[in-house]
């Protein structure tokens, strides 16, 4: 994370309602948010710039969220990835953690819950930066 700059978040969920609900709420809390509903555009975007935090759905049309998170971690290992999914299973949770996700949230969840997870992810990045 860079000094006093806003924490940047990339939000990827093919359900527009998720981004519609989350984006303004996170922006209100001072985050810089870019929301995507299609994985290819999101994949393109992470080739162009780094995000501090990525929040991604797992099951989407066109692109597999697991593939997306793998790409993010490959390019920016220090980016914290939070997985949100409507189709949670033990296997997907385990696989997500093996790929290095910060947390795994099954839908439905309240905005408060994900903002708490984002705060924890931010704190971890701060701790890492201060070492």
């Amino acid at each position: 994370m860079r000094g006093k700059e806003k924490t940047s978040i990339l939000l990827l969920d093919d359900e527009p309602i998720v981004s519609k609900r989350l984006k303004p709420s996170l922006e209100k809390r001072g985050y810089e948010v870019e929301a995507f509903t299609d994985g290819f555009s999101a994949l393109q975007r992470i080739k162009e710039r780094k995000f501090d935090i990525v929040v991604t759905d797992l099951k989407m049309e066109g692109i597999d969220g697991m593939h997306f998170l793998t790409e993010v971690k490959k390019k920016f290992p220090e980016t914290e990835v939070i997985v949100i999914t409507g189709f949670a299973t033990m296997q997907t949770a385990k696989e997500s953690f093996q790929k290095g996700v910060f947390d795994f949230l099954a839908k439905p969840f309240k905005i408060k819950e994900i903002t708490e997870v984002i705060k924890r992810a931010e704190n971890r990045q701060r701790e890492r930066a201060s070492k």
């Binding site: 309602i17 409507g86 949670a88 299973t89 839908k107 439905p108």
Partner: peptide, 14 residues
């Protein structure tokens, strides 16, 4: 509600 749709999803999956 969106929440109920999501919960049904999880029930179907589990």
């Amino acid at each position: 509600s969106q929440e109920s749709l999501e919960l049904i999803n999880q029930m179907v999956t589990v």
